[in-house]
Simulated scan of single mutants.
Amino acid sequence: MNHLEIKAAIQIAKPIQEVFEAIVDPQKMSNYFIAKGSARMETGKTVTWQFPEFPDQFNITVLSVSAPSAIAFEWEGAKDHVLKVDMQLQDKGAATVVRITEGTMPNDEEGIKWLRGNTEGWANFLACLKAYLEYNINLRTGAFDYMKG
């Protein structure tokens, strides 16, 4: 059976170190993605992310951080499935390409549901990261209020 894997990418008009810091620093990430994070993403740490729209908290087990070009972590990316997320940052001088891979899940109904939802999630993460870094805008503000209880 084939397995499903998410891939998403975007170019951000900011230097790689600035993009990297916006991902690993929970104070910066709270300006575009999470409501709060328990700690900076560092190799071997488990951090907790709280999203503004949902009461759930998500534990992120940081597998490796290679500043400023790579971050890898595991989380429960689908119910009862611990999945690996790889973030690769490519220096383009005044810009940075961010590539995200998450996976894998079986190519079945559950896997397709995960693929659809998390692909949308990572595309949103990348768009929010770009809007925050390039224009100082938090795209998530109010965007998912319709999902609250």
Rank of each mutant, 00 (worst) to 15 (best):
M1V: 08
M1T: 03
M1L: 11
H3P: 00
I6V: 14
I6K: 00
K7H: 12
A8M: 05
A9D: 13
Q11K: 11
I12D: 06
K14S: 13
P15Q: 04
P15S: 08
P15T: 05
P15F: 06
P15L: 03
V19F: 02
F20H: 04
F20P: 00
F20R: 00
A22E: 03
A22W: 04
A22H: 05
I23P: 14
I23C: 09
I23W: 06
Q27M: 11
M29V: 10
S30D: 13
S30Q: 10
N31C: 14
Y32E: 02
F33P: 12
F33N: 07
I34E: 12
K36S: 14
A39W: 00
R40F: 11
R40E: 14
R40A: 04
E42G: 00
E42S: 04
T43F: 01
G44D: 06
G44R: 01
K45Y: 09
Q50K: 15
F51M: 15
F51P: 12
F51I: 12
P52L: 09
F54V: 14
F54T: 13
P55N: 06
P55V: 10
F58E: 06
F58S: 06
I60K: 00
T61R: 10
V62F: 05
L63A: 04
S64Q: 10
S64N: 11
V65F: 00
V65G: 01
S66W: 00
A67F: 07
A67R: 11
A70G: 03
A72F: 01
A72E: 14
A72L: 04
A72N: 05
E74V: 11
W75I: 10
E76V: 09
E76F: 08
K79F: 01
D80M: 10
V82G: 02
L83Q: 01
V85H: 01
D86M: 08
D86Y: 09
D86C: 06
D86P: 02
Q90D: 13
G93H: 01
A94C: 04
A95C: 09
T96K: 03
V97H: 07
V97S: 15
V98C: 09
V98F: 11
R99W: 00
R99L: 12
I100M: 11
E102D: 10
E102S: 08
G103V: 06
G103W: 03
T104H: 01
M105Q: 13
M105D: 02
P106N: 00
G111H: 02
G111C: 02
G111N: 03
W114L: 10
L115F: 08
R116P: 00
G117R: 02
G117D: 08
N118G: 01
N118C: 11
T119W: 03
G121E: 05
G121I: 13
W122V: 14
A123I: 07
A123Y: 03
N124E: 12
F125V: 14
F125H: 13
L126F: 10
L126A: 10
A127K: 14
C128S: 15
C128Q: 13
L129E: 02
L129P: 03
L129Y: 05
L129G: 02
K130L: 07
A131E: 11
A131P: 13
Y132M: 06
L133D: 05
E134K: 07
N136Q: 14
N138R: 07
N138C: 14
N138T: 13
L139Q: 07
L139G: 04
G142A: 10
G142D: 05
F144Y: 15
F144N: 09
D145V: 04
D145L: 09
M147Y: 06
